[in-house]
Design a protein around this nucleic acid. Structure first.
Length: 560
RNA sequence: AACCCGAUAGUGUAAUAGGUAACACAACAGAUUUUGAUUCUGUUAUUCCAGGUUCAAGUCCUGGUCGGGUUACCA
């Protein structure tokens, strides 16, 4: 736990030092600045928790700002989903919803100012020529032939760029810094490019769009941001962030970089997540296998569990990959405390209790949550024919197998002890029916004579059980690192898990008939499940959020 | 090759004016158990390397090694 004790991560330490020194006069103002070009994923959740969390802890504010400077990839759908996901996580930007596109005019005026101060120029080289002129990290770049245009010419050209007189690629506006700078980003970076594309907010008002580097710091500045917290890959861009704030002589926030969240068996690249969606490897951005916030929500994760993961993983400057089990443990821990227990048989095999009266049904009391007495109890119907899990019976069980087998006695949860007397196989050799006798003395699950059984098994009444579609999810990728491929002809897609979704027809105890979307419970001995939005009156659909820990199937002598 | 950043049990993190290397999860073992779950107890295992300063170095100094990032008119 990194949260325990009084430990503060290095970002919070900086904030506290600044507060102590009066650097920002005690003001703490952060922002979360997503580009609306995809759905938020759990990596963004870490940034959200950091930015909104710090603001809250230090009596500050956190803005939501959409970094929408590249109209080609941005859509309103993404804006809306991002807002939904932040709220779901439990954070609130109040009245501080901003868009970088709100600042286009100001940014443009500043660009003219830089031109007038001979700190920016219109470059008319081709994309390729600009790239070549930039050199390489080891080799200094060479000046653009347009680098020494007069201020008047630059101004004229830039205004005509805005007016739409040129085609895409004809000109760009570049900052005049140093083509030989050791930091590549400072070799006359591009500030504006011509894009004759409709913007999701500004429509066709603009045909020149500012780049990230020219936009971000100034947007922070305009909003009075004090601590501009971003991920490690922006480290190299900090000198540029600083350069623009200094050149413009405007409020200059401090950029601080932290390590992004990586999880095993998945990946966070928005580009690749989009590809999974577009190529149909998953069923949309909110597919329960996706590491998106909406996917996790649909999978059954709670906002609390996502937030506590973010608190657990810590904030450092070190590239780290967190085990997926850490996330899984968060939701197990929470749902163990809070979720109702229910009985569901995912792979049913029929059991006939030969000495139980035909046609008789009795309702038995079942505790809802042994971890929470206030959750009360419910009744489950028991009868002569029931279903149990196919895995819970073995014709020829090994010694370590505790469950049902010929001659063995087990307990049916909240019901009776039953003993297997016989079983029937179908033509294919599969067990089709198991015959047992029950001991009426053991009603409720206790033997008056004190005899013990090794296993307690879940079950449902064959007559009263309801049907449901249950979707069993597993890791999206086979390997911890999706990029780890055996040879170069393969890529990350070759590591997709073909069995990441398995759908089964299950039989559920009847109390589940009224469950509605978002209802979470534990299917005893199986895992935690949530009712999916695909559910209809005719077809109840459950998603498996996570399995229970299982020390049996992991054993070398445990099958599966 | 140049620049920036990083390196502490398997994983993620802590040790903050040099002062007994610790926590969580994982793994393993045992106890409890009407979920092979939960809970409880215990065990294993850590400072990238080499020098140096010091009574004392994860921490400071020097040199190296390894990993990540930068060489987009994306963010």
């Amino acid at each position: 736990m990194t949260e325990s004790a009084d430990h503060k991560d290095f970002v919070r330490q900086i904030v506290e030092e600044d507060n102590a020194s009066g650097k920002w006069n005690g003001v703490v103002h952060t922002r979360f600045p997503p580009e609306p070009n995809g759905y938020l994923h759990i990596g963004h959740a870490k940034s959200i928790c950091l930015n909104f969390g710090i603001a809250k802890e230090y009596g500050g504010k956190c803005n939501l700002r959409f970094d929408d400077t590249n109209p080609e990839k941005e859509e309103v759908e993404y804006v809306e989903s991002i807002k939904t996901d932040i709220k779901w996580l439990g954070f609130d930007w109040e009245d501080r919803l901003f868009f970088a596109s709100d600042y286009f005019e100001q940014l443009y005026q500043w660009a003219e100012q830089l031109i007038k101060n001979d700190k920016a120029y219109v470059c008319s080289q081709t994309l390729e020529a600009i790239r070549e002129g930039r050199g390489t990290p080891a080799v200094p770049g060479t000046d653009s032939p347009f680098r020494n245009r007069s201020v008047d010419e630059n101004l004229d050209l830039f205004r005509r760029m805005r007016a739409g007189e040129f085609e895409e690629g004809e000109h760009v506006l570049r900052a005049k810094i140093d083509m030989a700078h050791k930091v590549m980003l400072l070799r006359d970076p591009i500030m504006y490019r011509i894009r004759k594309v409709e913007h999701h907010r500004t429509g066709n008002a603009w045909c020149i769009y500012p780049t990230y580097d020219y936009t971000h710091g100034q947007s922070d500045s305009l909003e009075g941001i004090t601590h501009s917290i971003c991920t490690l890959e922006f480290e190299n861009r900090r000198p540029l962030y600083d350069w623009f704030c200094d050149a413009l002589e405007i409020h200059h926030p401090q950029q601080i970089e932290f390590n992004r969240l990586n999880l095993t068996y998945t990946m966070m690249s928005k580009r690749r997540l989009l590809q999974l969606v577009n190529d149909g490897h998953v069923n949309g951005w909110d597919d329960p296998r996706m590491p998106t916030i909406s996917g996790l929500r649909r999978r059954g994760y709670t906002p609390e569990s996502v937030r506590s993961l973010c608190a657990q993983v810590g904030v450092t400057k070190h590239n780290a990959t967190t085990d997926m089990v850490v996330l899984e443990n968060q939701i197990r821990e929470e749902l163990n405390r809070t979720a109702d227990r229910r009985m569901a048989v995912l792979d049913p095999v029929k059991v006939v209790i030969t000495n139980y009266p035909e046609g008789q049904i009795e309702n038995l009391d079942a505790v809802n949550n042994p971890e929470d007495e206030s959750a009360g109890s419910r009744q489950v119907p028991f009868g002569r024919e029931i279903y149990i899990e196919r895995d819970d019976f073995m014709e020829d069980p090994p010694k370590k197998f505790f469950r049902l087998g010929p001659g063995r006695e087990v307990r049916l949860r909240w019901a009776y002890f039953i003993k297997c007397t016989d079983f029937v196989k179908d033509d294919a050799g599969n067990i089709s029916e198991i015959h047992c006798t029950y001991d009426p003395e053991t009603k409720g699950g206790n033997a008056p004579d004190g005899r013990k059984v090794k296993a307690t098994m879940h079950w449902v009444s064959a007559d009263k059980a309801i049907n449901a579609e249950v979707r069993l999810y597993d890791h999206l990728f086979l390997t911890e690192d999706p990029d780890e491929v055996e040879d170069e002809s393969l890529d990350w897609k070759s590591n997709l898990n073909p069995d990441s979704l398995r759908t089964v027809s299950a039989r559920l105890e009847p109390s589940l008939a009224t469950a509605t979307e978002g209802y979470r419970c534990q299917f005893e001995r199986q895992g935690y499940f949530v009712v999916d939005k695909d559910s209809t009156d005719q077809n109840l659909v459950f998603n498996r959020t996570v399995t229970l820990k299982d020390s049996w199937t992991k054993r070398p002598d445990g099958k599966k």
